[in-house]
């Protein structure tokens, strides 16, 4: 049976009531988990890593939701936590293996080929490989704009970067991806 769709305001009210706290959080996860998971998955690439980061994100949400001030939308707030968790995860991975920034993306690119949970065709594989050649910030902006179709204002709120800088990043990202697709 599908879960009822509840407005964020109602979810927050229920979360602040100890009797309905867990129930409301269950609904919150079900409401946002797919968007968060796919956003994270496009950053960390493998399902195992995306699963870890998604879980950590919602655990962090649980621990901090009481202090959520509703100055931004709940989804934007969760999206920001997920983005930070995913980027932090990649940075820890780089530190762990003592390898420069480009190599972790190369490793992820190689993993794509044998990934059981990669369901795209050849051209989509090529696009993912092209994205993995981008600097971290450009890849992030490209994913949020291209796949999630978020407005620049929303991306700005999530990443804390100005709209102008985001537009420039996206423009550069598209140019680099196009060049990669045409030359490979």
């Amino acid at each position: 049976m599908p879960e009822p769709i509840i407005e964020d305001k109602e979810l927050l009210i229920q979360f602040r009531n100890s009797n309905t706290r867990t129930y409301s959080f269950n609904l919150l996860i079900r409401k946002y988990q797919q968007k968060i998971y796919w956003h994270v998955r496009r950053i960390v690439i493998t399902h195992e890593d995306a699963n870890d980061v998604t879980q950590e994100t919602f655990i962090k949400v649980w621990k901090n939701l009481d202090s959520f001030k509703e100055e931004s939308q709940l989804f934007t707030w969760i999206y920001r936590i997920a983005t930070n968790e995913a980027l932090s995860f990649l940075r820890k991975k780089r530190t762990k293996y003592f390898i420069p920034i480009v190599n972790i993306e190369n490793a992820l690119s190689n993993k794509l080929v044998d990934d059981n949970f990669f369901s795209g065709d050849e051209i989509q594989l090529k696009l993912q490989k092209a994205l993995l050649t981008l600097p971290e910030k450009q890849r992030l902006v490209f994913n949020m704009k291209y796949y999630d179709e978020l407005k620049y204002e929303k991306i700005s709120e999530i990443t804390g970067t100005s709209v102008g800088a985001l537009k420039a990043s996206y423009h550069h990202a598209v140019k680099k991806v196009e060049k990669y697709l045409l030359s490979n």
Partner: peptide, 20 residues
């Protein structure tokens, strides 16, 4: 324009319980 990844069967069904 689609995310070319998949997840294990029933992943999103079980995930909330795992987190809780």
């Amino acid at each position: 324009k689609k995310t070319p990844f998949s997840v294990p069967a029933d992943y999103f069904e079980h995930n909330p319980n795992v987190i809780l």
